[in-house]
Amino acid sequence: MADYQERPATTTTVIEKRGGGGTAIAILLLVVVVAIAAFFLISSETSKDSAIEGAATQVGQAASDVGDAAKDAAGSTTSD
């Protein structure tokens, strides 16, 4: 006689469900937004620093010009 095994009356099916990756995309998007914001913030600070530096240079040059003019004026009054 042939060996015959009966199948069990009930079977269990295991279904593994994996995430769709929405969380990873959200985190990646957040990182990109933070990087862009940091770039513009740093860029803005650099522009402010450059403007302040330029103004300070102009004030320093103007003070030097006034000093030179005062020396010239003082020199011309003593020569007369």
Rank of each mutant, 00 (worst) to 15 (best):
S47A: 15
V59P: 00
A55K: 10
F40Q: 09
Q58G: 02
G60H: 04
F40P: 00
A26Q: 03
S64V: 02
G54W: 02
I25D: 06
G60D: 09
A63Q: 13
I36S: 04
A63T: 08
T57N: 11
I25R: 11
V59L: 14
D49L: 12
A24G: 14
S47H: 06
A38Q: 02
I25K: 10
F40V: 11
V33T: 07
A51I: 08
L30W: 04
I36A: 15
I36R: 00
K48R: 13
A63W: 02
T57A: 15
E45Y: 09
S44Y: 10
E53A: 15
V31L: 13
A55Q: 12
L30G: 11
T57R: 11
A38H: 01
T46V: 14
G60L: 04
I27E: 08
S44N: 13
A26G: 01
Q58V: 05
A56K: 12
F40Y: 15
S43H: 10
I36W: 03
E53L: 10
I27V: 11
A38N: 02
K48F: 08
D49G: 05
A55N: 10
E53S: 15
A37S: 11
L41H: 04
I52D: 05
I25T: 07
S50G: 08
L41G: 12
Q61V: 10
A38D: 02
A63L: 12
S50I: 04
L30D: 03
F39G: 10
L28P: 00
A56N: 14
A56Y: 03
L41W: 11
F39S: 08
T46G: 10
S64H: 03
A38R: 00
A38E: 03
A56C: 04
A55I: 08
V32W: 01
I25C: 00
A55F: 08
T46I: 14
L30M: 07
A51G: 13
A62C: 01
V59M: 06
S50M: 10
I42L: 15
T57S: 14
E45N: 11
I42A: 15
S47P: 00
S43T: 06
T46D: 15
L29E: 06
T46W: 11
V34E: 02
K48V: 12
T46F: 12
L28V: 03
S44F: 12
V34Q: 01
A56D: 09
V31S: 02
V31A: 13
E45R: 09
G54N: 13
L41M: 13
I52V: 11
A62Q: 05
L29Q: 05
Q58T: 07
I52Y: 05
S64M: 06
G54I: 02
A35H: 01
T57I: 09
V33M: 07
A38I: 06
V34L: 15
I52E: 08
I42H: 06
G54L: 07
L28Q: 13
S43Q: 12
A51Y: 10
F40W: 14
Q58A: 15
L30E: 05
V59S: 08
Q61K: 12
A63C: 05
I52R: 07
A24C: 06
I27T: 06
G54H: 06
A56R: 11
T57F: 04
A35F: 03
I36D: 01
S50V: 04
E53C: 05
E45S: 11
A55Y: 09
G60M: 04
V33R: 01
Q61W: 03
V31R: 03
V59W: 03
D49H: 10
